[in-house]
Design a protein around this nucleic acid. Structure first.
Length: 417
RNA sequence: GGGUAGUUGGUGGAGUGGUCUAACACACCUGACUGUAAAUCAGGCGACUUCGGUCUUCGGGGGUUCGAAUCCCUCACUGCCCA
């Protein structure tokens, strides 16, 4: 049993983790049976959680399951400081109502992973709003401009002649002071948070508190292989419907399969390793040879690996049944190119309608011009028959037929008159 | 406070009086290919259209001109240098 716990802890400290600061110290504390206060700061400006953010939450969950206290800090005050790289809008102070609303959304999403009943919540305005210049000056004195400007992303912006607001200097101070305020033992974050996470240690030291340990998880790439970010549109959101979520994961580049398994699921590492080696098998010369002579059928195709990846992830957020259904949907629709069973209906209110208008009205094109282009380029069909005439009309005889736009858009046409 | 250079479509970035809906690249969309994806190839990528056109866009506002992304004024914002 003892050993089992140690293995769990080792996995917590290594799976998907890029760096742990005071690793040995932290391991010792985790083993000691002490109940640690594990801090995570969350940003109330963007309520949409995606898989990239979920990696940290999964880690929090692991810790929660070992009996540690999860402390979530809602950055209602920090949110104002935020990132000023967006040139046109200095963000206004979030009003209480928005924060509340975003928080509710957040809780709902994070609740898919964490046991929210056991989470301790704080708004950082609780303590940050009370500080005056004197205190801020004191905190600020713990850091130098050099340290700050050496941060990679700041340095880059400085080099490129982009604006870096002085306000941004305050951000790490605030996040660091949060750790003091909640007396954090451990703080989690992405590797991009390094500086902010470490600032907590600085300030705790200054305030004669024991210094928190820091655990940084790797950032994962988005579905297109670039950095996962809401503004790139390459995220898989926790709120995505099962079919969507499944499809998005299937679109992830092959190279990321194992990384996703490690970071976004809790499939045992041994199984992941097995998949990895079986996938690599397919690439080697010997395996090709063996396959050619029919001596071996062990290997795993990236497609199948990805299917089970998508399965695992959807299961995590939507449950097993949903995952199974999503898998079927995907195979039928995209592999076998069948028309799915349940598709949205579009009710036509008149006797006939222009196809272009229908495509737009059903949400499958952004403008009539866009619809026309899709039609002209052969992206639109009705009951598997391609329509290429942009002037085409739909009428009574199309009642109940299935309109397909692109790979994903299915609409059942229903006439009301 | 002084000086100086800038602000172009989702992004980067050309363009300095008409041929500009604005090069090129990325992103995005459609199609082909495929084991999902990627890669590759083809086409597209402001809006509306009776498919002949019409209208809107180059930080905001105003002006000069037959004509402005391009010239002038003004406001806002940003970089850099100096104090």
């Amino acid at each position: 049993m003892e050993k089992n716990i140690e293995q769990q802890i080792d996995e917590i400290l290594s799976r998907g983790v890029s760096e742990v600061i005071e690793r040995e110290h932290l391991k010792k504390r985790l083993l000691s049976g002490e109940k640690l206060r594990v801090k995570l700061g969350i940003d109330p400006t963007s309520p949409n959680l995606h898989l990239g953010r979920a990696t940290v939450l999964l880690k929090m969950k692991d810790l929660q399951q070992l009996g540690h206290q999860v402390v979530l800090i809602i950055g209602d005050f920090t949110g104002v400081i935020g990132d000023t790289s967006d040139k046109e809008s200095e963000r206004p102070m979030l009003d209480a109502a928005t924060v509340k609303k975003n928080l509710a959304t957040y809780k709902e999403q994070a609740g898919k992973i964490l046991d929210m009943e056991k989470v301790e919540f704080h708004f950082n305005s609780e303590w940050l709003a009370k500080l005056g210049y004197a205190e801020i000056g004191e905190h600020a004195d713990q850091f130098s401009l050099h340290e700050f400007s050496a941060r990679e992303n700041i340095k880059k912006r400085l080099d490129e002649g982009k604006r870096v607001s002085l306000r941004e200097l305050l951000y790490p101070l605030m996040q660091g002071y949060d750790s003091v305020a909640v007396r954090a033992d451990l703080e989690l974050g992405g590797t991009d948070q390094r500086f902010n996470l470490l600032s907590g240690r600085e300030l705790q030291k200054h305030f004669k508190q024991p210094q928190q340990d820091v655990l940084m998880v790797n950032l994962i790439e988005g579905t297109d292989g670039r950095k996962m970010s809401s503004s790139w549109g390459n995220t898989v959101n926790l709120t995505d419907q099962p079919n969507d979520m499944f499809g998005k994961i299937m679109r992830v580049p092959d190279e990321l399969i194992i990384k996703y398994f490690i970071h976004c699921t809790r499939l045992p590492l041994a199984e992941i390793k097995d998949k990895e080696s079986r996938m690599n098998l397919g690439k080697s010369f010997w395996s090709k040879l063996l396959t050619a002579v029919g001596a071996k059928k062990q290997e795993l195709s990236p497609r199948d690996a990805k299917l089970s990846l998508a399965d695992e992830i959807v299961k995590l957020y939507h449950g097993e049944d949903a995952a199974r259904a999503a898998r079927e949907y995907f195979i039928n629709t995209f592999s076998k190119k069948e028309i799915p069973q349940d598709i949205a209906q579009f009710e036509v209110q008149s006797v006939s309608m222009k196809l272009t208008e229908l495509v737009v009205a059903s949400g499958n094109a952004t403008s009539l011009g866009d619809a026309r282009r899709k039609i002209e380029q052969g992206g639109v069909s009705i009951n598997d028959k391609k329509i290429t005439d942009p002037q085409a009309m739909v009428a009574k005889e199309n009642d109940g037929q299935v309109l397909k736009i692109g790979k994903m858009g299915f609409v059942k046409i229903v006439f009301k008159k």
